[in-house]
Write a protein that binds this DNA or RNA. Structure first.
Lengths: 245, 245
DNA sequence: AGCTGGAGTTCCGCATGTCGGAACGGACGC
DNA sequence: GCGTCCGTTCCGACATGCGGAACTCCAGCT
């Protein structure tokens, strides 16, 4: 098995152990999660700490500043964010809601930027966070304009149920996406989290391919969501034009 | 030499090759920068691509989304940012200037968050960016309240000249830091970039140790900088109190 | 076309660096 | 003072990473 054999991929599996929530792990926990013998983990961790992918704390290990730095250098989200930020801010000040920018990554979306609504408490997603496409407005906006093969992938991976309202039937998802194409707007009606509504619109690059989506979220009713659709759509059109320049 | 011998550190040196500006490199460039034979680089890159630390593009390789994700999970900046954001926003709306939050990393500061002034063009630093401590208000604010050994390290590393006004004399730096301690405010008068003024104040955790600093920047004159000092100081005190909770 | 330079990829034998069980040592907390 | 769970060290066997060299492919010249 070429996959887990190389010492590099063993080391990377150590880093993977951190994306399930907890910010701090002991060496033993780390070795267990990564499925490595303690002594192997120990040696690899030594290198990772030296490079500052990991940091030692009094009680264990956690991800280090080097990863923070590199994460901010990743070109695809960085360039998109730099262009989009002014538009997102406009949307934020006019709607006074939480504004999101996300890109596709495999069959998920990854949040690139999130401008929080003033009073809102902790959101359930964050910049750098990942959610499935089928249950988010952002994801559906992107999926609706992607090649059909992507939808097949999403369906094949299974439409995981996040709330009682999550779309789980592939046929229902198909007709939903057709509706999205008609409006150029996608909704999420408590499909990723109960109580959460969201309106999103796709963003296209100069080749006319979907690369990302914008959304406004955090409202309580379906009707306010509909009410905000024009603002989101307008922002998405301006931004797509900017991305084509 | 244990350092460059392990295959893991070779792989990490490939990632290091990206932090000098350019977002996209060819395999050969990458191998050269990392000082590795092409065939070795090729094999390692294969693993990194599989893990999505790197992505292949038509013309080369660039940092991948996995690093973006992990970068946002790094606890120390993340937790600080989450707590500080509301205070930064207050400072931003009241001053209408660019607001920065940075932590110390070795003898540099690393920007954790940056709220841009509305009209300002491209700033010279960004979230995830790194600058020396001795030539920035943020750095001096942190350095002034750090153990003396740190100052020695900074001096030993050499006070690199960024502009004609950069402090290069260790004695001058010492007296400057004493002044910072007296005011609880640090200034940067075109010491990191000509035309750029900055006011910063330190942030303390519950143990009374400096962990970070806030600043307001982007003004043209020394007097407006002085004028904004009370706002920065107030924000830093509130924030320090919050960090102690 | 034909050539040339530089890109990425493949091959394969050598030996180097990795593997991991097991044993050690230290810090808690019961 | 005893058990437990942590991190660290050791070392022989061996698997794996190493990298020079050779190959292919494409783009741009002449």
């Amino acid at each position: 098995m070429r996959n887990s054999s190389s010492s590099l991929s063993r080391a990377l599996s150590l880093l993977d152990a951190f994306d399930k929530g907890d910010g701090e792990l002991t060496l033993t926990e780390l070795a267990d999660r990564a499925g490595l013998p303690k002594s192997t983990a120990h040696r690899l961790v030594g290198d990772l700490v030296r490079w500052r992918a990991l940091e030692r704390t009094p009680h264990g290990l956690r991800l280090g500043m080097r990863l923070f730095e590199l994460g901010h250098l990743v070109p695809s989200p960085r360039e998109l964010r730099d262009i989009a930020l002014p538009y997102l801010e406009d949307l934020h000040t006019t709607t006074r809601k939480t504004v999101n920018l996300a890109v596709r990554d495999g069959i998920d979306i990854v949040y690139v930027e999130k401008l929080l609504a003033p009073n809102e408490p902790v959101p359930h997603s964050r910049a750098g966070g990942r959610l499935p496409m089928h249950c988010t407005a952002l994801g559906k906006a992107i999926l609706a304009y992607s090649p059909p093969a992507l939808l097949d992938e999403v369906v094949a991976a299974g439409l995981r149920r996040m709330t009682p309202k999550t779309i789980q039937d592939p046929r229902a998802l198909r007709t939903e996406l057709a509706a999205v194409r008609e409006r150029r707007i996608a909704y999420d009606v408590e499909e990723s989290r109960i109580g959460l509504h969201c309106v999103a619109a796709p963003l296209f690059d100069r080749r006319g391919e979907v690369v990302a989506a914008v959304s406004v979220t955090g409202m309580q009713s379906r009707s306010t969501a509909r009410h905000l659709a024009p603002a989101v759509l307008t922002a998405s059109l301006s931004l797509s034009r900017q991305l084509s320049a």
